[in-house]
Design a protein around this nucleic acid. Structure first.
Length: 121
DNA sequence: TAGTTGACCCCGC
DNA sequence: CGCGGGGCCAACT
Protein backbone atom coordinates (compact mmCIF):
# COMPACT_ATOMS: atom_id res chain seq x y z
CA UNK A 1 0.00 0.00 0.00
CA UNK A 2 2.15 2.86 -0.90
CA UNK A 3 0.12 5.20 1.15
CA UNK A 4 2.05 8.37 1.37
CA UNK A 5 1.33 10.88 4.04
CA UNK A 6 -0.80 13.47 2.40
CA UNK A 7 -0.50 16.40 4.67
CA UNK A 8 -2.85 18.54 2.67
CA UNK A 9 -6.32 18.16 1.21
CA UNK A 10 -7.58 16.79 4.49
CA UNK A 11 -10.43 17.97 6.72
CA UNK A 12 -8.00 17.83 9.62
CA UNK A 13 -10.16 17.12 12.66
CA UNK A 14 -7.62 18.74 14.97
CA UNK A 15 -9.48 18.17 18.16
CA UNK A 16 -7.22 20.44 20.12
CA UNK A 17 -7.83 23.44 17.90
CA UNK A 18 -11.52 22.71 17.56
CA UNK A 19 -11.81 22.33 21.29
CA UNK A 20 -10.15 25.68 21.83
CA UNK A 21 -12.70 27.33 19.57
CA UNK A 22 -15.50 25.63 21.49
CA UNK A 23 -14.29 26.83 24.87
CA UNK A 24 -13.63 30.37 23.68
CA UNK A 25 -17.09 30.49 22.16
CA UNK A 26 -18.50 29.54 25.55
CA UNK A 27 -16.95 32.58 27.15
CA UNK A 28 -19.83 34.90 28.10
CA UNK A 29 -19.71 38.55 27.12
CA UNK A 30 -18.09 40.73 29.72
CA UNK A 31 -15.73 37.98 30.78
CA UNK A 32 -12.19 37.08 29.76
CA UNK A 33 -10.11 33.93 29.86
CA UNK A 34 -6.44 33.10 29.61
CA UNK A 35 -4.45 30.84 27.30
CA UNK A 36 -3.05 28.76 30.12
CA UNK A 37 -6.46 28.16 31.66
CA UNK A 38 -7.87 26.89 28.38
CA UNK A 39 -4.77 24.86 27.61
CA UNK A 40 -4.89 23.28 31.02
CA UNK A 41 -8.57 22.53 30.63
CA UNK A 42 -7.78 20.71 27.41
CA UNK A 43 -4.92 18.83 29.04
CA UNK A 44 -2.12 20.78 27.37
CA UNK A 45 -1.02 23.04 30.19
CA UNK A 46 2.52 23.15 28.77
CA UNK A 47 1.30 24.01 25.29
CA UNK A 48 -0.32 27.30 26.09
CA UNK A 49 1.37 28.73 23.02
CA UNK A 50 -0.63 26.42 20.79
CA UNK A 51 -3.79 27.97 22.15
CA UNK A 52 -2.57 31.24 20.74
CA UNK A 53 -1.94 29.61 17.39
CA UNK A 54 -5.41 28.10 17.47
CA UNK A 55 -6.90 31.53 18.06
CA UNK A 56 -4.76 32.87 15.26
CA UNK A 57 -6.54 30.46 12.96
CA UNK A 58 -9.75 31.46 14.68
CA UNK A 59 -9.32 34.96 13.33
CA UNK A 60 -9.43 33.44 9.86
CA UNK A 61 -12.49 31.42 10.69
CA UNK A 62 -14.05 34.54 12.12
CA UNK A 63 -16.27 32.52 14.43
CA UNK A 64 -14.45 32.89 17.72
CA UNK A 65 -14.34 35.93 20.02
CA UNK A 66 -10.58 35.81 20.43
CA UNK A 67 -10.65 39.25 21.99
CA UNK A 68 -11.97 37.70 25.18
CA UNK A 69 -8.82 35.65 25.48
CA UNK A 70 -5.81 37.30 27.06
CA UNK A 71 -2.64 36.16 28.75
CA UNK A 72 -2.34 35.33 32.44
CA UNK A 73 -1.49 38.94 33.24
CA UNK A 74 -4.75 40.14 31.80
CA UNK A 75 -2.78 41.96 29.16
CA UNK A 76 -3.91 42.18 25.53
CA UNK A 77 -0.92 40.31 24.20
CA UNK A 78 -2.68 39.36 20.97
CA UNK A 79 -3.96 42.80 20.12
CA UNK A 80 -1.12 43.03 17.64
CA UNK A 81 -2.75 40.36 15.50
CA UNK A 82 -6.10 42.07 15.17
CA UNK A 83 -4.96 44.21 12.31
CA UNK A 84 -5.38 47.40 14.29
CA UNK A 85 -3.46 48.36 17.45
CA UNK A 86 -6.71 49.17 19.20
CA UNK A 87 -9.07 46.69 17.54
CA UNK A 88 -8.98 44.23 20.41
CA UNK A 89 -9.46 46.92 23.03
CA UNK A 90 -12.39 48.40 21.18
CA UNK A 91 -14.03 45.00 20.95
CA UNK A 92 -13.54 44.36 24.65
CA UNK A 93 -14.94 47.74 25.59
CA UNK A 94 -17.89 47.01 23.36
CA UNK A 95 -18.48 43.90 25.45
CA UNK A 96 -18.43 45.97 28.61
CA UNK A 97 -14.86 45.13 29.59
CA UNK A 98 -12.75 48.05 30.67
CA UNK A 99 -9.25 48.18 29.29
CA UNK A 100 -6.53 50.53 30.51
CA UNK A 101 -3.06 50.65 29.04
CA UNK A 102 -3.70 47.43 27.09
CA UNK A 103 -4.64 45.82 30.36
CA UNK A 104 -7.99 44.45 31.51
CA UNK A 105 -9.34 46.26 34.54
CA UNK A 106 -10.33 43.99 37.42
CA UNK A 107 -9.02 41.10 35.38
CA UNK A 108 -9.22 38.82 38.38
CA UNK A 109 -12.93 39.50 38.70
CA UNK A 110 -13.47 39.30 34.96
CA UNK A 111 -11.49 36.11 34.70
CA UNK A 112 -13.50 33.15 33.44
CA UNK A 113 -12.03 29.73 34.16
CA UNK A 114 -13.44 26.90 31.99
CA UNK A 115 -12.47 24.25 34.46
CA UNK A 116 -14.12 26.21 37.23
CA UNK A 117 -17.28 27.03 35.29
CA UNK A 118 -17.61 23.94 33.11
CA UNK A 119 -15.53 21.30 34.85
CA UNK A 120 -17.60 21.33 38.01
CA UNK A 121 -19.12 17.96 38.74
C1' DT B 1 15.04 19.22 4.98
C1' DA B 2 16.10 21.56 8.92
C1' DG B 3 16.14 25.73 11.80
C1' DT B 4 13.78 29.45 14.04
C1' DT B 5 9.80 31.87 15.72
C1' DG B 6 5.78 32.34 18.39
C1' DA B 7 -1.41 35.66 20.91
C1' DC B 8 2.59 31.57 26.74
C1' DC B 9 3.54 29.63 31.39
C1' DC B 10 6.38 27.76 35.18
C1' DC B 11 10.63 27.05 37.78
C1' DG B 12 15.14 28.46 39.40
C1' DC B 13 18.57 31.84 40.98
C1' DC C 1 10.82 39.84 46.10
C1' DG C 2 12.69 40.60 40.90
C1' DC C 3 14.70 38.77 36.71
C1' DG C 4 16.13 35.02 33.38
C1' DG C 5 15.90 30.78 30.95
C1' DG C 6 13.62 26.48 29.56
C1' DG C 7 9.73 23.85 27.71
C1' DC C 8 5.78 22.97 24.71
C1' DC C 9 3.91 21.87 19.61
C1' DA C 10 3.00 23.58 15.23
C1' DA C 11 3.64 26.72 11.36
C1' DC C 12 6.68 29.65 8.59
C1' DT C 13 11.10 30.61 5.84
Amino acid sequence: MSVKKQKASTPKPDNFFEDVYAVVRLIPAGRVSSYGAIARYLGRSGSARMVGWALNNALVLHDVPAQRVVNREGRLSGKIHFGSPTRMQELLEAEGIKVENDQVVDFKERFWDPELELGST
